[in-house]
Design a protein around this nucleic acid. Sequence first.
DNA 1: ATTAATTAGTGTAGAGTGGACACTTTGTGG
DNA 2: CCACAAAGTGTCCACTCTACACTAATTAAT
Lengths: 229, 229
Amino acid sequence: MLNSYSSEDKVLLSVDCIIFGFDNEGLKILLIKRDFEPEKGKWSLMGGFLKKEESLNNAATRVLNHYTGLQNIYMEQLYAFSEVDRDPVDRTISVAYYALINIENHNTELIKNYHAEWFNISNMPKLIFDHDDMVAHAIRRLRYRTSTKPVGFELLPEKFTMRQLLELYEAILDKELDKRNFISKINSLDILVKLNEKDMQSSRKGSYLYMFDKEKYDAKLLNNFALNL
Amino acid sequence: MLNSYSSEDKVLLSVDCIIFGFDNEGLKILLIKRDFEPEKGKWSLMGGFLKKEESLNNAATRVLNHYTGLQNIYMEQLYAFSEVDRDPVDRTISVAYYALINIENHNTELIKNYHAEWFNISNMPKLIFDHDDMVAHAIRRLRYRTSTKPVGFELLPEKFTMRQLLELYEAILDKELDKRNFISKINSLDILVKLNEKDMQSSRKGSYLYMFDKEKYDAKLLNNFALNL
DNA sequence: ATTAATTAGTGTAGAGTGGACACTTTGTGG
DNA sequence: CCACAAAGTGTCCACTCTACACTAATTAAT
């Protein structure tokens, strides 16, 4: 009685990854220049096909690793895109994922080989197929996610200043935040460690570096995390 | 150069629908008794396979219509479930949708024929495969959705009392709400019409019936809708 | 050595929102 | 006409959110 679904249609399933990074220029997305037809030479998200023996999460992780060399990255499934004519080559349903990476850590050799580039989210080229929709979804989800998870820390280096954290949240939410209110809200979460170490790049006075306290955070997540900026 | 994806694996894609309804006994889900192997006789969500020439939204709408006779129903895509061994028959990825229906409107003949039944969400049988996960996801999403969309009105008859609306939200959120605070929050949304008509079933005094004001609501959605209960 | 320049760092008051709380009104059934 | 049952209605307190401006620390320039 197994294989009783044999009369049903089978389709191609792909994953496409919206990869977010952050540096002093703002919030960015990693895009790749397609080197095959159709739409050769156009910009695209990083994608790949689901193999029969893996889950979608595995496929997304595999694709991310393939293009960036990174592992153990925060990823989240977004949405399945399935319009009949979304891919002109063959009927393909694509499940979009987004990832938050520390822009300093990825393998820059790899992305050069793939003709990949970082684009500021406010200055992106038109993408192939429905990839623009996917990006719009991802940005919406990321904005919402700031209120339920400390997403910011995924995007920053291990040690960072309050100013960097503030500017990251401003970039994600696309609005100005009050410095004092921001700092007191972040401090009230009680998930940061203030280091005895200053970053001297940004000013003459120098600003303290902070780290994310994973233990305190894990304890907090079990109860409740909420951050309204 | 078309059909260049020919070496990739193809898989079965299905949709499974979590169908919510509400009556005076509480929030309910419509389940179906499987009449084929494997897991014949076990309870299951209503599902169907994606056909090559339709989108996932269309497939979900088709499945809902097939089992309930309903059209133009609020549905929302939830999540794609893709563990490799989730379906023992064949490799199948399933995209879960949830729907909100007015429990009085569906075709009761149809659901009898399909051996479908309504179950209170606090008293559900164990479901096949990963359908329990899907339901848990759907309830979480529905709870969140109350704060961003007036989901409640989808689940009630056209005319309803404040008490019904209150009890619906209590059932969705699984907590008691203060009657006065609830009513003032709902009224401050300004999307209800109070009718000159009373429901005399529930009490000797009778309670006013309300309707949802679609126009005011549409206007409001464009700006902002927020309801924190 | 003094000064100028630059960013870091810090607290408070006022407004608005959310939550707790109890009594009166209304109409029917007995 | 009285008893009953649910409907309907407003206030106060606590907390949270937001707006807002000055001092501290250090280095570079002279």
